[in-house]
């Protein structure tokens, strides 16, 4: 007990940073369509012909973007797109699932497009499903949805917490790719929530009407609420399946410091993905969201560089379970 390993103090605050990035990504997806609409008004050079509501949007966007650039028509093109595929100052990034889906649909490999997924793939190999926890705009809504579920619980409505086989999502991925190959169109994009959200936000704001994707997404929210907590991400998401496979031997993972652990099981309760940090079971599903690090009352969770999880370390040394074993206690006293 006297030789305590203290995790780096900032790890506890990573969860706040994660919420910040999730919020920023979501705000980006909302603001980009507005920016585009503003750009089209600028390009038309016809402020006087705009309807009053359009003028209002023009004025607001002009006020917001004036400090950034004096050439909105060209310079605001710097950031475009969604998490499915986007450009940042001429630098293109794409979702690895988009690459795989396109390869399945067309039986072709287009190298420039392949390279746009290089950085996401490298990050996924290092950090596992980090996209799911840190960037995915659907995660932002799904985690809020979990909070709604807790609220419903207070009003006496029980939310579903069924468990299924985690391998269903690999089946969804494979079937999605096979169907993509048969139909010759990238069908995985139609059931992949982050792609749906980016797209539907653009359709809704800039093109004046949402499509079938929104209906599907609401369906997944209800599934999460009534059937299984974060059920879509854990059991059905094809992207999550791909990232789980890529990040199976991820180098950066969370581990439990058994010396500090008191078996309170708060980590198991907070884990959105229903994993078992208390018994060192993270596996390929963990998305490094750091919620368990943030909630741990005894600083028993930290990051480690290991391609595999620690084997089960047994009861935490601060817990009651551990003190029941006298042989170990004696050792501890020395």
């Amino acid at each position: 007990m006297n030789t305590k390993i203290k995790p780096f103090f900032l790890w506890r605050h990573l969860n706040k940073l994660r919420w910040l990035t999730l919020t920023l990504v979501f705000l980006m997806l909302i603001s980009l369509p507005f920016i585009h609409v503003y750009q089209t008004y600028v390009a038309a050079h016809a402020y006087d012909l705009l309807a009053p509501s359009e003028k209002q949007l023009y004025d607001v966007m002009e006020t917001l973007t004036a400090p950034l650039t004096n050439d909105p028509q060209e310079k605001l093109d710097a950031i475009k797109g969604t998490t499915w595929s986007g450009t940042f100052w001429e630098f293109k990034l794409s979702d690895p699932l988009a690459i795989v889906g396109q390869m399945a649909a067309g039986f072709t490999v287009y190298t420039p497009f392949l390279l746009t997924a290089l950085i996401p793939v490298i990050f996924t190999v290092l950090f596992g499903r980090f996209f799911c926890g840190w960037i995915c705009p659907a995660t932002f809504l799904y985690e809020l949805n979990t909070n709604v579920a807790a609220l419903l619980q207070r009003f006496g409505i029980k939310y579903g917490n069924r468990r299924f086989d985690l391998r269903i999502k690999y089946l969804v991925l494979v079937v999605g790719l096979i169907l993509s190959a048969i139909t010759g169109s990238v069908l995985v994009a139609t059931i992949y929530p982050p792609a749906i959200i980016g797209r539907e936000l653009y359709y809704t704001i800039a093109l004046g009407g949402f499509g079938a994707g929104t209906v599907f997404f609401i369906g997944t929210l209800l599934f999460d609420l009534l059937v299984a907590r974060r059920g879509f991400c854990r059991y059905l998401c094809p992207g999550g399946a791909l990232y789980s496979l890529l990040g199976r031997f991820r180098l950066v993972r969370i581990r439990r410091i058994v010396e500090n652990c008191n078996d309170c099981a708060k980590c198991n309760a907070i884990c959105e993905f229903g994993l078992d940090p208390l018994r060192d079971h993270f596996g390929q599903e963990c998305n490094n969201c750091t919620a368990c690090i943030a909630i741990c009352p005894t600083n028993a969770m930290t990051f480690t560089l290991r391609p595999m999880d620690y084997p089960e370390q047994g009861a935490g040394h601060l817990g009651r379970q551990y003190r029941k074993i006298p042989a170990l206690m004696d050792k501890e006293v020395d």
Binding site: P33, Q39, K80, G81, S85, G86, A189, T190, L207
Partner: peptide, 20 residues
């Protein structure tokens, strides 16, 4: 059909289109 299978539906072309 080649176009449909090459397009990933990201919507970027729409998002940069000046006349929308």
């Amino acid at each position: 059909s080649a176009f449909v299978s090459a397009c990933i539906g990201c919507g970027l072309c729409g998002e940069v289109c000046p006349p929308r």
